[in-house]
Design a protein around this nucleic acid. Structure first.
Length: 403
RNA sequence: GUGGAUGUAGUUCAGUCGGUAGAGCGACAGUUUGUGGCACUGUAUGUCGCGGGUUCGAGCCCCGUCAUCCACCCCA
């Protein structure tokens, strides 16, 4: 027997239904906000991810499904969705159009990690990317859209926000932070010592308790934002408050991907184990030009479908369509042609083996149809079918053509 | 990459001191042959993860291996 690869899963029945429901709900809401569907390749040139996600990140550093294809191209299976969408945006020369562009996408992502609860090697994300809108109101709109999606799915969440500053206020802060960290270097863990050089901002995010205890006094970016960033962040919090969206500011919230600036946000759930982050996003104003496009501000987010799968409250299933069966073998062809006709408009469950009434009714219970349709010897002789409305329990015998 | 736990029927699990497997759920059939869901009765199903070792004898003990789960880490 061949099993699926490590960290990859088949979805069937209840799970695949939940999956579809999440996509449908999120897509419907995204369309209301003016987003159009975009589909981009799963395989991309490795350089795309190195330049966008960043070589210092674990994702690019050690988790990519990277290989040389038969044409000797260095390629990767996408570990996240934003890079590909930005690349597509630039490839289509949309960065030279004056209008704003908004895209939503969903599909599989691949990261070669050790699997555990909420962490798979092939997982699925739903995401949105908004290009050309620099206003902080777009950041707010995206966050409220995410909140709306989670509300629609019946998922409880906590929203965490932070500002990562911009190219004006981040560099001086960064220098400031490096100085601070260098002073307390001896107290920090091995990883953090490496991060001081590679990505000092991430030290703030270290899960090591000893490190955290020394970081209390670290300079906070939130206190060192430039005027523009500060105003925007304050406006964002004001808007969230008026909208009644609860949030918590976490000055240590650092998104794991290098391309973010200004607003960063994350939705977390306390009900799904250690991998508690269910969606994340933020602004990435420099990424388009970084990937050789015309400078274009952008904001986006992605949500992890598997992470919220068990949290989703599914609507109750309604009885639908017909169950058809025969109690005499000669009636099976009649049932079949009837089913074919009905399937033009309705769901039909059909049983090909002729069997007793009771057996069929058990099949009816399983199929959960609106109507049960059976043909026995009498009906076959008269050219009729027996129909029962399962909800009202009302029974009728009608001509085959009249059904 | 590091650490811990677990692999027995479709599924959830039990299996004592080592004596070649059992329950619940589900499935299927039946309870006077055409009125279901409930109940009752009955039936079927196993490479005991895989490979080796110890033993008269291994689901159980030992070694290895693979997989799953959980945590660290990372992140959606």
């Amino acid at each position: 027997m061949i099993s699926p690869l490590r960290g990859m899963k088949d979805l069937t029945f209840d799970e695949s239904q939940r999956f579809e429901y999440i996509i449908e709900t999120a897509s419907t809401i995204a369309r209301r906000y003016g987003y159009g569907y975009i589909e981009t390749p799963i395989l991309e040139e490795t350089a795309l991810f190195k330049r966008s996600v960043g070589e210092s990140s674990d994702i690019v550093g050690k988790e990519m499904y990277q290989f040389i294809d038969k044409g000797e191209n260095d390629v990767c299976m996408r570990p996240e969705g934003t890079a590909g969408v930005v690349r597509a945006f630039i490839s289509a020369k949309l960065d030279r159009q004056p209008n704003k562009q908004k895209f939503y996408y969903y599909g599989p992502m691949f990261r070669y990690e050790k699997p555990q609860k909420g962490r798979l090697r092939e997982f699925h994300q739903f995401g949105c990317e908004s290009f050309g809108e620099a206003s902080v109101y777009e950041d707010f709109t995206i966050i409220s859209m995410m909140a709306q999606i989670f509300d629609a799915l019946g998922i409880k969440y906590e929203l965490i926000i932070n500002s990562l500053g911009c190219s004006e206020c981040m560099p001086p802060y960064r220098e400031n932070l490096v100085n601070f960290l260098t002073d307390i270097q001896k107290e920090l863990c091995e990883d953090c010592n490496r991060r001081i050089v590679t990505n000092p901002i991430r030290v703030l995010d270290c899960k090591n308790g000893k490190c955290q205890s020394h970081l209390n006094l670290s300079p906070k970016l939130i206190d060192n934002l430039c005027e523009g960033c500060d105003d925007d962040f304050k406006e964002l919090t004001r808007m969230l408050e008026t909208a009644g969206i609860a949030y918590r500011i976490d000055t240590n919230l650092v998104r794991g991907l290098d391309y973010y600036n200004k607003s960063a946000f994350e939705f977390v759930s306390s009900e799904i184990g250690a991998q508690s982050s269910i969606a994340g996003g933020g602004r990435y104003d420099k990424l388009v030009e970084f990937l050789d496009g015309k400078p274009t501000p952008a904001v986006g987010f992605a949500l992890g479908i598997e992470r919220i799968m068990e949290l989703v409250k599914m609507p109750e299933e309604q009885p639908e369509g017909y169950y058809m069966g025969a109690m005499t073998p000669e009636a099976i062809p009649t049932i079949l042609t009837l089913a074919t006709r009905k399937r033009l408009t309705d769901k039909v469950t059909i049983e090909y083996t002729s069997k007793g009434f009771k057996s069929h009714m058990k099949g009816v219970d399983k199929a959960n149809p609106k109507y049960a349709v059976l043909i026995g010897e009498d009906e076959l002789a008269n050219g009729t079918v027996w129909v029962k409305d399962i909800e009202t329990k009302e029974e009728r015998v009608v001509k085959v053509e009249e059904l």
